[in-house]
């Protein structure tokens, strides 16, 4: 059976797996964005606090994914929950880092101008700093997403969802007729999901970058 025949014959399974793959990544990114941008907003003015949060999230990223996923089993069991927890934890660093760097990077004069015209600190943060830092934050989210799409493949090993199931199916039936097809379908399916996400982010970036910042590019 050729790869195209394989894909055609299992289209339902594959598309469901791809959708699940995308969904689990999207949920994890959503949570991580809320948490990461929040942490960045709260800590960016206190170097000690932001450095501590960066160090912790960097530490998490150092833990090999297979180890983190399996160490979560006693706590959150097999399947979706463990996958989501691990993916969310991995996504934090790029988002926090880019939020902190972005907020700090906003021109001091711009911030002072905002303060000078009577905006409160919170208002300056939300109306001036955050919009200006947004392109960088979005880059962080994008980087995290690409990373999670790859990591999510391993989640299948702890009964998580997604296209990783195809790869592990191929591995467990090494030598049988469809093992190569399953692996290829899983691997390239994941790359396609990654490309679609990247496309999505290009559009989001275009739509959400303040117009004045786009003009300069």
């Amino acid at each position: 059976m050729s790869l195209s025949e394989y894909v055609a014959s299992r289209w339902d399974t594959l598309s469901l797996a791809a959708a699940e793959h995308a969904l689990v990544v999207a949920i994890a990114i959503g949570i991580a964005t809320l948490a990461g941008v929040g942490i960045g907003l709260v800590t960016h003015r206190v170097p000690r606090a932001s450095n501590a949060s960066l160090a912790v999230s960097a530490g998490i990223l150092t833990i090999p994914s297979l180890a983190l996923l399996t160490l979560l089993i006693p706590i959150t069991g097999l399947g979706w929950t463990s996958t989501l927890v691990a993916l969310t934890a991995y996504a934090l660093l790029p988002i926090i880092r880019n939020t902190v760097v972005g907020l700090r990077g906003v021109d001091r004069a711009t911030v002072e101008a905002g303060r000078g015209m009577g905006m409160s600190r919170v208002r300056v943060l939300m109306k001036v700093q955050l919009p200006l830092a947004w392109p960088l934050i979005l880059t962080g989210i994008r980087v995290s997403t690409q990373m999670l799409i790859g990591i999510a493949a391993i989640a299948a090993f702890v009964d998580g969802p997604g296209l990783g199931t195809q790869i592990f199916e191929g591995l467990s039936r090494l030598g049988s007729v469809n093992s190569l097809n399953a692996t290829l379908a899983g691997t390239f399916g994941i790359v396609i999901v990654a490309l679609l996400f990247d496309l999505f982010f290009s559009v989001v970036r275009h739509l959400t970058t303040p117009r004045g910042l786009r003009v300069r590019n």
């Binding site: 690409q146 990373m147 799409i149 790859g150 990591i151 999510a152 493949a153 391993i154 990783g164 790869i167 592990f168 191929g170 591995l171 090494l174 093992s179 190569l180 692996t183 290829l184 899983g186 691997t187 994941i190 790359v191 990654a194 490309l195």
Partner: peptide, 22 residues
């Protein structure tokens, strides 16, 4: 380099196995 990040490591390893064995 950016796209390569999206290729799942486990997929790459298993694909290598088809070529070179375990």
């Amino acid at each position: 380099a950016n796209l390569g990040q999206a290729v799942p490591a486990i997929g790459l390893l298993v694909l290598c196995t088809f070529v070179m064995g375990v």
